[in-house]
Simulated scan of single mutants.
Amino acid sequence: MPRPHGFRYDTHADGTVTITHHNRLATTLHGPRAQQFLAETTSAADPQLVMARWTGNYKRGNERTARNHPRNRR
């Protein structure tokens, strides 16, 4: 499975966390969810995987099948 990339997160003074993917807003976390996310990213070996999982923006394994479908061929 390819490793996700292009994720970035910013923490704000009010405790919210915004996660962007290629400079586009992917999600905003507030309160306990933001704290849980921060704890998980600091302890993770690869924060990109954590951010991909929290946003739901990760490879699902069917990209090659979809690319080879006749409708998607050029």
Rank of each mutant, 00 (worst) to 15 (best):
R64L: 14
M51I: 05
R64C: 12
F7K: 03
V50K: 06
R53D: 04
T16W: 08
A52R: 09
R53M: 03
L29P: 03
G31R: 04
A44N: 04
A45L: 08
T41Q: 02
A26C: 07
Q36P: 11
P2F: 07
S43I: 07
H30Q: 13
T11Y: 08
A66T: 03
G6I: 09
V17P: 04
H22V: 02
R73T: 09
H21P: 05
D46W: 08
E63D: 13
R8D: 09
L25W: 01
V50A: 07
K59T: 13
Q35N: 14
D10A: 10
G6Q: 03
L29R: 11
L25F: 02
T16C: 03
T42G: 07
H69M: 09
Q48N: 08
A45R: 12
H30A: 11
N23H: 13
A45W: 01
N57S: 00
L49C: 01
D10V: 01
A34R: 12
P47Q: 02
R3K: 13
G31M: 02
N68C: 10
N62D: 15
T18E: 12
S43K: 09
N62G: 14
D10I: 00
A39S: 11
R8T: 12
N62L: 14
R24N: 06
M51F: 05
T27P: 11
Q48M: 00
M51N: 06
R73Q: 15
H21C: 04
N57A: 07
G15T: 08
P47A: 05
A13M: 01
I19D: 01
R53F: 08
G61I: 02
A13C: 08
V50D: 03
D10L: 03
N23I: 07
R53G: 00
P2K: 07
M51Y: 00
R60K: 14
A52T: 02
R8C: 12
R33E: 14
E40A: 15
R3Q: 10
P32L: 15
F37M: 08
T27V: 15
N23Y: 09
T18G: 02
T16I: 01
N57M: 10
L25K: 09
A26H: 05
P32S: 13
T11I: 05
T18I: 10
R8G: 03
M51L: 02
I19R: 01
D14Q: 04
Q35E: 15
H5M: 11
A44H: 01
A34L: 10
A45H: 12
A44T: 07
L49G: 00
V50I: 08
A13V: 07
R71Y: 12
A13Q: 08
